[in-house]
């Protein structure tokens, strides 16, 4: 589904990604861990097409297409979803209106008929229930005045609405209390199928108690320096990163 080969990227003059190789197949869950500043969010941003980053080398294939040549919105319509670490507030734009436009674009790309108003409302109710999203939030402006937990639930709600092929969740667990973490993580698990894939970027093992990964990768200094199964996350939780990164320190 997603093949990343020797990906290098920079922001301004600073090289952040220094040769990432990663393959994600349908049905898989990958966790990307690593110390602060290792390039995790940059990787998510590059895959989503954030123009803040410049790709200097390497290639990315998504669903057989050269992803780096595809504009941001087209990547989204193809089914690439980014769960934001800091969801953006958009004053005066209601969640319902925003989602109506987004769902319409995704369906148009898939060659599906637009939803009727009542089908859309039913979908909103059904998907909102997955993350126990307060139905009042969907009539409010996008993320405006939402609590930290509500913003993250809202990200997973949008993921549920858009039914992506590949979801990249950038520190979806940051800023969540225990209950919200459980709801958000369980929501992600419910949305996982054999046809889609999830990449979770996280600092903490506790998220992976709910979202059990097939692979855990350690990103450090712009490269994946180690990969393993879910037991790697437990080891990292106990022992930290030092045993891995000593050899790679600049």
């Amino acid at each position: 589904m997603l093949i990343i080969k020797n990906l290098h990227a920079r922001v301004a003059d600073k090289e952040i990604l220094k040769g990432i190789d990663l393959e994600v197949r349908a049905g898989e869950i990958h966790a990307i861990m690593g110390p602060n500043g290792s390039g995790k969010s940059t990787l998510a941003g590059v895959l989503a097409g954030n123009e803040k980053y410049t790709v200097t080398e390497g290639e990315v294939t998504f669903e057989g297409r050269d992803l780096l040549a595809v504009p941001v919105e087209e990547r989204a319509r193809m089914g690439l979803f980014l769960g934001f670490q800091y969801p953006v507030e958009i004053a005066g734009v209601s969640m319902a209106n925003f989602m109506k436009l987004a769902v319409a674009e995704r369906r148009r790309y898939l060659g599906e008929e637009p939803l009727t108003a009542s089908e859309f409302l039913r979908l909103m109710r059904e998907k909102g229930a997955i993350v126990e999203l307060d139905s009042k939030l969907t009539s409010r402006a996008v993320n405006e005045g939402f609590s930290g937990g509500e913003k993250k639930k809202n990200e997973i709600f949008q993921m549920a609405m858009l039914d992506p092929k590949l979801a990249i969740l950038d520190e979806t667990d940051s800023g969540l209390d225990i209950d919200a973490l459980r709801i958000v993580a369980t929501g992600v698990t419910k949305l996982h199928t054999a046809e889609n894939a999830t990449v979770v970027i996280t600092h903490y093992q506790r998220l992976l108690d709910y979202i059990v990964p097939d692979y855990v990768h350690v990103l450090y200094n712009g490269r994946i320096i180690h990969s393993g199964d879910k037991s790697l996350a437990l080891k990292l939780e106990k022992e930290g990163y030092d045993w891995l990164i000593n050899d790679y320190k600049e």
């Binding site: 941001v72 319509r77 979803f81 953006v88 209106n97 436009l101």
Partner: peptide
């Protein structure tokens, strides 16, 4: 960028933002 990541075109995202404003 947030709106485009959800599939809206750039023009639509800009218009929606100003409309909301």
């Amino acid at each position: 960028f947030y709106m485009r990541q959800r599939g809206l075109s750039e023009a639509e995202a800009r218009r929606l933002q100003i409309e909301g404003f």
